[in-house]
């Protein structure tokens, strides 16, 4: 177990180095000149360009630049400053990350609730009406784009039915005073309902499929038959013998999907105008602000690696075959 843990952590560090290096190189090779962006784009004067280039260290060779970047990141915990606004990128991310986190984790809870309940139910009653309805849902969920779903949702529930707000974010811990913005947990959840649902639909569909298949497969396992032969009631069989085994691969999937989800969050944030990481990066792209974009990518990388680590540990905890090997 300990060995496994060490191996996972070292693996995460290795991945971190590879990914940051690759992003760094990609940004380095991008055609835009960051010094230009810093000096106000097209009106950049040669003197400003020169000082900016030196200040950013752009005149140094690539490995040195990467080393400096890494040193700044590890020792100073700093992602640098924006080329466009000269703001600390840490600050920008500190504001945007909770929004994206609310979206992703709230969404994950939604898709797991839907996935588990519908998936298990359709596995227990294959070919029933609910099972078939779930299949239709899955088809729609997998094929529809989140922007389209988001627009439909905000039109139907917000504009037509006036049940939910159609945009904006409410801070969980209360809005800043005098801002006139809504705040607090209730407002937070109220504003997030549509984004969550929009965001969750794609994954909920995939998870319904997967959980259904896993549960059905596990129900056919020999040890489930053994449990029945022991005289265990169906409910006990489901919870004690089927689910834990059936959900093992789901846990792994969940770890991988958190990363995919961060990418998917961009669209949802865009539709509902949520000031999260996705929208931050869209704005950064438009401003040719590579430093901020890179900051977001690096931060997302760390977050994904961290969650994968947690998932690995969770997996080891559930599956004795890994824990005891």
């Amino acid at each position: 177990m300990f060995r496994y843990l060490i191996r996972r952590i070292l693996w995460a560090i290795f991945l971190f180095l590879v990914i940051t290096f690759v992003t760094f190189v990609i940004f380095f090779m991008a055609p835009n000149n960051p010094a230009r962006a810093m000096c106000g784009g097209d009106q950049a004067g040669p003197v400003c360009l020169k000082t900016a280039t030196e200040k950013l260290g752009l005149d140094k060779p690539l490995p040195v630049q990467y080393g400096l970047f890494l040193k700044r990141l590890v020792w100073e915990h700093s992602l640098g400053t924006s080329y466009a606004t000269s703001q600390s990128i840490n600050e920008t991310i500190k504001q945007a990350a909770p929004v994206t986190a609310s979206l992703v984790f709230g969404g994950a809870v939604c898709w797991m609730i839907i996935g588990l309940s519908v998936g298990i139910f359709s596995a227990l009653r294959p070919r029933s009406l609910i099972d078939r309805a779930a299949m239709v849902f899955v088809l729609i969920g997998v094929s529809a784009h989140p922007v389209w779903i988001g627009l439909i949702f905000s039109y139907v529930f917000g504009v037509r039915l006036h049940i939910t707000p159609i945009a904006n974010y409410a801070n969980f811990f209360g809005a800043p005073p005098d801002s006139g913005l809504p705040g607090g947990p209730v407002q937070w959840a109220y504003h997030m309902i549509l984004p969550w649902m929009t965001f969750a639909i794609l994954f909920a569909a995939l998870y319904v499929r997967m959980i259904r298949a896993n549960v059905m497969e596990t129900l056919n396992e020999d040890y489930v038959r053994t449990a029945r032969a022991k005289g265990a009631p169906e409910q006990r069989i489901l919870f004690s013998h089927v689910l834990r085994n059936a959900l093992l691969p789901v846990v792994t999937m969940l770890g991988m999907d958190i990363g995919v989800a961060l990418g998917g969050a961009i669209f949802t944030e865009y539709v509902y105008q949520l000031p999260g990481l996705g929208r931050t990066s869209v704005i950064a792209i438009q401003a040719e602000d590579l430093a901020t974009l890179e900051g977001v990518v690096v931060f997302a990388t760390i977050a994904i690696l961290f969650f994968n680590l947690i998932v690995d540990l969770l997996y080891a905890w559930i599956d004795p075959r890994i824990r005891l090997s």
Binding site: E221, D222, Y223, R225, T226, A227, A229, K230, S240, H241, R244, N245, I318, D319, P320, R321
Partner: peptide, 15 residues
């Protein structure tokens, strides 16, 4: 009670 052919798969691996 009943015992089965394949002892490798007839016991629940997580308990």
């Amino acid at each position: 009670s009943m015992i089965f052919q394949d002892p490798m798969t007839s016991l629940n691996p997580v308990h």
